[in-house]
Simulated scan of single mutants.
Amino acid sequence: MAEAECAVPDALAGELSRWRREVCGTCGTSAMFYCPYCCTPLGVPEGVMVPTARLPFARCDIIFDDAPKKATSIHAKVLAPEQVRLIDLFTGEGNSNRTLSRPAGSTGPKEMGKCQSPQGEAESVLREIPEYDPHATLVLFPDDSSATYHEVTSENGLAPLDGLTLVVIDSPWKRAQVLRKHPRLANLRSIRLGHPPPSRFWRYHSEGTGCVSTVEALAALAKEVSSEGGSASGAAGLDPMLEDPLLFFFVRQFAYISERHVSAGAERPMDATAKQRRMDQVRQKDRVKRPKLRPYGPEARRLSGPRLPA
């Protein structure tokens, strides 16, 4: 199956028509599916139950440095609030807009670092990367030194699964590479997906095929960790993306964007052909913007023409 070539099931398309944009009662944001600042579901239709996901490790810390409305890591916070902690590096101290750290836009010290959980209790949102125990922490990051989870667990000295913290970086790729070298992350072991799924993400990136969004990567890793053989597969005949509770909102956003483009007769942004076309356009713009090098020496004088007298 080509990357992202996926039709929206009729049942899901019918459900989409019943979702409504709603104003968050905590911060006043108008959104569909969930509030990206307070991490709570919004506009859920009658008869639709938002699942509670359970991660196979003790905790997941998401180092967040992207716009909340664009980042898929917010899905994990909404669906697994007790296990997911956000580390908000996106918000500057002088930022008075709505943020994960200040959902109501307040700048008061009592409101700093608080976010409303679905249970209505205030949960901390860290503003800096904490210290981690190298023996109880792994970073999901596909660098040259990374190994699969099952390869890492065959080594001695790693904490058991129920005592393990997984760190995930959610930011544009170039920024993520910088964050991975942060002094509090640099000494931690990297793990990568053993079986990366085809990405259905609709945002453009220039890293080519094999790259997935944050919540897709987290869901795939959770399946690999939970399975004996380390592969992620669903029931016969069913798309694994539709079954996974961690992908509940991702699936609906995918379907909403897909249906909107199809009904307008436009190409879907998540399809491989659309991504390739966008990549070609960006590369062409980069070539146009690249300054031309001027010749040096006698050739430069010849091309510049005769000098005018002073």
Rank of each mutant, 00 (worst) to 15 (best):
V178Q: 14
V178S: 12
V178I: 15
L179G: 05
R180V: 09
K181M: 11
K181N: 12
H182T: 09
L185E: 12
A186Y: 09
A186D: 10
A186V: 14
N187L: 11
N187F: 12
R189L: 06
I191V: 14
L193T: 03
L193H: 03
L193Q: 04
G194W: 04
H195A: 03
P196F: 01
P196M: 02
S199T: 12
R200M: 02
R200A: 01
F201T: 09
F201Y: 15
F201L: 15
W202L: 07
R203F: 15
Y204T: 11
H205R: 00
H205S: 13
S206W: 12
E207Y: 13
G208F: 11
G208W: 13
G208L: 04
G210E: 02
C211F: 13
C211V: 15
S213G: 13
S213V: 13
E216V: 01
A217M: 05
A217W: 02
A217R: 04
L218P: 07
L218E: 09
A219H: 03
A219F: 02
A219R: 01
A220I: 03
A222L: 00
E224I: 00
E224F: 01
V225N: 02
S226N: 00
S226V: 01
S226G: 03
S227F: 04
E228M: 04
G229L: 09
G229Q: 09
G230Y: 04
G230C: 03
G234L: 06
A235K: 09
A236H: 08
G237E: 08
M241C: 07
M241D: 07
M241F: 12
L242N: 11
E243W: 00
E243T: 06
D244I: 07
P245Q: 06
L246P: 07
F248P: 06
F249T: 01
V251I: 06
R252G: 08
Q253W: 14
Q253H: 12
A255V: 08
Y256I: 01
Y256F: 13
Y256M: 13
I257M: 15
I257P: 07
R260L: 10
R260V: 04
H261A: 15
S263H: 05
S263Q: 11
A264V: 07
G265V: 11
R268A: 11
R268L: 11
M270S: 15
M270H: 15
A272Y: 15
A272L: 15
